[in-house]
Amino acid sequence: MFDSPVVPRSFFMNVGENSANIALSLTKAKEQVVVRITGGCGYMSEEDANGLYDLYSEAFSGFKGAMMFGGTRMVSKNDRNIVLPGITEVVPRIKKENPDCIVFGVVPRTDDVKMDTQYGFIVTDDNNPWITIPHPDQDFFVLLQKSVDQSATWTDEWQECYNVTKRLRNVCDWKSLLIAYNGGGITEQEILALSKEGWPVLLVNGGGRKTDEYASNEEFLTKYPNVKVCNKDVRSFRNALIEMSILPGFKKSLNLQVINGGKF
């Protein structure tokens, strides 16, 4: 289960707290850019999952910035080597192929956390036959709660990512990008919040649900020119990352133009 011999550093934080150490840890990335991966996969097949992993891995080849994601992994209660496919597997795979990037998970404590001799932390175990654990292949993660007695929500997860992004943008002049794929109501909240903020947003079209709804909403895309759309294929995705200056070294050498209303 542990691809890396080094287990991730863990932080514990109440919603609303500011952490200097978390922000500082992200600055170890070689490129000053932070990417937040959001969305869902909604019980996709293993074949579909592998296609999604390959899509992200190939598109992000050469990435040296920082990444934020949900920070969890779902494994079988009976066999910890059986992993439920999901979007939170995407970022650790990018990390594996791009070891210079820094990967940070934000894990809301939505239930009581338990300790287990086999799994370490168990974030939730009420989703039979799966249990949720902090993903072992990330640089560090924060377990987020409202207080000792109050759980956090999935909204708190994206809002913490928003807070960290804001700090890095405003204080350190970092670039940022929110990438949305699939997803439901919480993903929608995040897309809308960052669109209104004027920060770069990339919608990966073709994965379904809320992301596809906004990717085909011409009125929305016209209102928020900071929101771009790419197709669910490597060429389109990678071109978008280059055009949005997330991948280093290419933009100046290519004469890229915004065509097709910002769609890649």
Partner: peptide
């Protein structure tokens, strides 16, 4: 109080 994150981040520039 907790350490001042934004001040500390200035150093990373």
């Amino acid at each position: 109080s907790s350490l001042p994150a934004n001040y500390m981040l200035v150093a990373t520039k």
